[in-house]
Design a protein around this nucleic acid. Structure first.
Lengths: 331, 331
DNA sequence: TTGTAAGCGTTATCAC
DNA sequence: GTGATAACGCTTACAA
């Protein structure tokens, strides 16, 4: 063993007085004589031997590594998702290579290229590109966006969640509903939140209107709102916002205009964003089952044998009061 | 080239009619005949060749990969740090392997072991262990915690930030200050925030008291606070909280007891935590220069030639009003 | 069972 | 400048 560099299996073999192959077997759980087993393990410990996964990966073709491609870690949903996926991978003895893609699909493609070069066993991505798999036939699973018939997608039950939100508002006494949504450039699963909301309103025969913003900044929604508030008396008493950020902004606008929340207008958001690490929500909301989504994505990316039964995994959301509905405990 | 698997340099060499060595040179920017250069690139494009970094890493000993070990991604400071470090690494053509360590040092050691096995070129860690480098002589840089004389540490100027907070409160008219801090099990750089606060108070000759909670949950601080509020009139008019979460909780307690913030009591936190992706702060606060911290950590882990001039890099923080001080714009 | 040896895809050291 | 060829540390037939 050349000093200065790490010991290899060869060194361990020499130290233990066995052959290289035997050492390899020990570290792979392949049965080997009790004596040899022990000798090898002792020798390895004595030398401070560390398995070189690059050598193993090169030989075996499996690297036990999965790439996660995200647009950001600032949004709480994304950071939680990243953490849960990381934990889920660790439970399966996998490592996570994290890529933050800049807006624009060149960056996403670039992340994909690097992930492939790094021989990842699979990729989980929140993507806005049409199809990330340029030439590479990597195993791919997306979150919240269906990009191809052979790429499994994991999301929360956006449609069902939108429905539940509407039903909840109605149950809480709202008579005139409003649904607001910001659509991103590429259409994605979360767009169904507002569809589910509309469906439930119609089914219940309740008066409702909807405002969908395509400009991505939500300005349309804010001005739409201010327009309907001009006389100080809103012509609605319940709002479903397709995410908590939007709900927060909508709530601020309402309060600025002197509208009492939840007394005059009740608001339900979507995501389940918490303040700090605590339990405090920003608003009453539909909570996404992030851990389950992470587990599902990881299972799919590791085990999908091509014959996945369902291409879109929709996981159930749950409602929780968070101060912007009348069922919230009053401070 | 065996079909089904990815083309290798050998395949490219054959396709281009050159030798393997020449192909390697092309992909390493080593000068090669103009004609050959082009032939190789065309052949590679035609075959959809992808560099195998596992083979390169095995041979060269450098993997262009850095591990980041964090206790969580839920705290906004950590998620922002992770994102900035990821971006910083990308700018330097590096990849990031992310590890979330469970509380307790076995998990941290485990992350370290896996990072070493994966042949990372270095590790950046937010750690509570005494010394992560068990046997391995990995290049290590810590965040917010000095663990050994030869391990560089990056942090914000915690002491200076605490000082500035006190000075700011005094400047804003506070006469009787209070400093509160939650110390984690292992002493770390952020503990200096409260020291800087005390120093500035003493220097200014201002009346002040301090409450440090060692139980990690902040219960001590809350009850300390409630005790001093029992009669409804607080005997302090300015509080420095060593992080924004604490500032938020303290603010809630004060308001619950009918104390007006910032009219009666002004509060300054530390971190610069934002609501959603927006600009809204939870409180007036000392903002940490996360991007600069990330860049510094990455530079150190990649370039530290052992002869680092400063072992502790303290980056300057900045104050920003966020509603819990009188200099905040009133809504 | 255990040892031997041929690669895995690259880089790097040689002669040519 | 270019092309063979020997590693890098490991897995895995296959031989003993």
């Amino acid at each position: 063993m050349k000093k200065g560099s790490m010991p290899t299996m060869k060194d361990v073999a020499q130290e233990a007085g066995v052959s290289l192959g035997t050492v390899s077997k020990v570290f792979n759980g392949i049965p080997v004589g009790k004596m040899y087993q022990q000798q090898v393990q002792e020798a390895a410990a004595r030398l401070g031997y560390r398995l070189n996964r690059y050598a193993r990966g090169l030989k075996s073709g499996k690297t036990l590594t999965v790439a996660l491609i995200l647009p950001s870690l600032q949004t709480q949903f994304f950071s939680t998702l990243a953490q849960k996926i990381c934990e889920s991978l660790r439970e399966r003895e996998r490592q996570m290579l994290l890529f933050i893609a800049q807006p624009g699909m060149e960056s996403e493609q670039d992340c994909m290229r690097r992930a492939v070069e790094h021989q990842v066993d699979g990729v989980i991505a929140v993507t806005y590109s049409d199809d990330l798999r340029k030439n590479s036939q990597v195993r791919l699973v997306t979150i919240d966006r269906l990009i191809a018939p052979d790429v499994p997608c994991v999301s929360s039950d956006n449609y069902g969640g939108g429905q539940m939100a509407a039903q909840k508002l109605i149950e809480l006494g709202c008579k005139r509903l409003l649904g607001v949504h910001i659509a991103c450039a590429a259409s994605s699963e979360p767009d169904k939140r507002i569809d589910g909301f509309c469906f439930a309103c119609r089914s219940a025969g309740v008066e409702f209107s909807v405002c969908v913003d395509n400009q991505q900044q939500g300005e349309q929604i804010i001005s739409f709102l201010e327009q309907r508030l001009r006389d100080g008396t809103p012509d609605f008493d319940g709002i479903f916002c397709s995410n908590d950020d939007l709900a927060y902004r909508v709530g601020s606008v309402l309060r600025e205009h002197g509208v009492k929340v939840p007394e005059q207008v009740q608001i339900i958001g979507y995501d389940g964003v918490k303040k700090f690490e605590g339990r405090d929500l920003f608003c009453s909301t539909m909570i996404q089952p992030v851990k389950e989504m992470a587990d599902t994505a990881v299972d799919l990316v590791l085990n999908s044998d091509g014959t996945s039964p369902s291409i879109l995994a929709c996981l159930p959301v749950s409602y929780m009061a968070g101060g912007t509905t009348k069922d919230s405990v009053q401070p």
